[in-house]
């Protein structure tokens, strides 16, 4: 039985797809059979971030409509063993995702995989609700910024009440915070919410903090999950997050500024 993990945030542009790609690739590298499922019907982008956009023949909706089998639609990653991608459809039909269809596909994937990573669209419409509904675990991607934190709190409310686990009275979805685009420099200047501030407001466990990094844009330009850029700060922060996700206890890095000399301390930055 696979563990179903939703990567969600409410707000758009905070790094859900970047995170799905990185966490999925990290889990696969750790030896777990992992599939990434793009729930953003009409605006698919996971294929681009994973660098397999030219290999999409069949998609999630084709499988739901039984126009293709799962084996035909799953794209095997060429860099990492055990990693597969199920692309979203580019259809403009909002109702293309059906509850029964999603459940059937997830149940079938469950037989073959250890982890199913559901990359949620922004917002709290059908695609986002369905990405959350079947989840066992949730990674809440949040920027240290007011609208993102508020939307994340909204999403936490949905996870607590509108999921299969809530409907069945099962133990609740495990929720973990991933704070992205973090700038220790701006936090120190008092211009950005700190990781403690966000933790205090949302009151959930912290999976990791990803620093604002050039590496993220570079990786998405190239279609490489940033976790594979092993020397980059963001890549290492994602590696730590995956290790924590798998139960390892790792200290958080990239939360502090580099130590400055006497001159720097006197005149600040």
């Amino acid at each position: 039985m696979a563990k179903i993990v939703v990567v969600t945030s409410g707000k758009g542009g905070v790094g859900k797809t970047t995170t799905s790609a990185a966490i999925g690739a990290g889990l696969a590298k750790a030896g777990h059979r992992t599939v990434l499922v793009d729930f953003d019907v009409g605006l698919r982008n996971l294929d681009l971030i994973m660098g397999c956009e030219r290999r999409v023949v069949y998609d999630f909706i084709n499988v739901i409509h039984e126009e293709a089998s799962l084996n035909q639609a799953l794209i095997r990653d060429k860099r990492v063993d055990n990693l597969f991608i199920l692309a979203a459809s580019q259809t403009r039909d909002k109702d293309a995702l059906t509850e029964e269809g999603v459940e059937r596909v997830l149940t079938e994937l469950s037989k073959d995989f250890d982890y199913i990573i559901c990359d949620s669209p922004a917002g709290i419409e059908r695609g986002a609700l369905l990405a959350m509904y079947y989840a066992d675990e949730a990674i809440i991607v949040t920027n240290p910024e007011v609208s993102s934190v508020r939307d994340s709190d909204r999403v936490l409310g949905i996870l607590a009440s509108k999921t299969r686990r809530a409907a069945n009275g099962d133990p609740p979805v495990r929720e973990q915070l991933l704070l992205t685009r973090y700038s220790p420099q701006r936090v120190q200047k008092g211009e950005m919410l700190s990781v403690e501030d966000v933790k205090e407001i949302l009151a959930i466990d912290l999976l990791g903090v990803i620093p604002e990094s050039q590496a993220v844009l570079n990786a998405s330009n190239a279609g490489v999950p940033v976790i594979l850029e092993e020397d980059s700060d963001a890549g290492q922060a994602y590696q730590d997050s995956v290790a924590r996700f798998l139960g390892e206890d790792r200290p958080h890095r990239f939360l502090q500024l580099e130590k400055k000399g006497l001159f720097g301390r006197l005149f600040g930055g």
Binding site: E145, D153, R154, G157, L193, D197, I201
Partner: peptide, 19 residues
């Protein structure tokens, strides 16, 4: 007043109300 503190106070109020 540091803007991060303002952000935190505003968020605490709005989140409490919505919850």
């Amino acid at each position: 007043k540091r803007s991060a503190n303002v952000a935190k106070e505003r968020l605490q109020i709005v989140v409490a109300r919505e919850r």
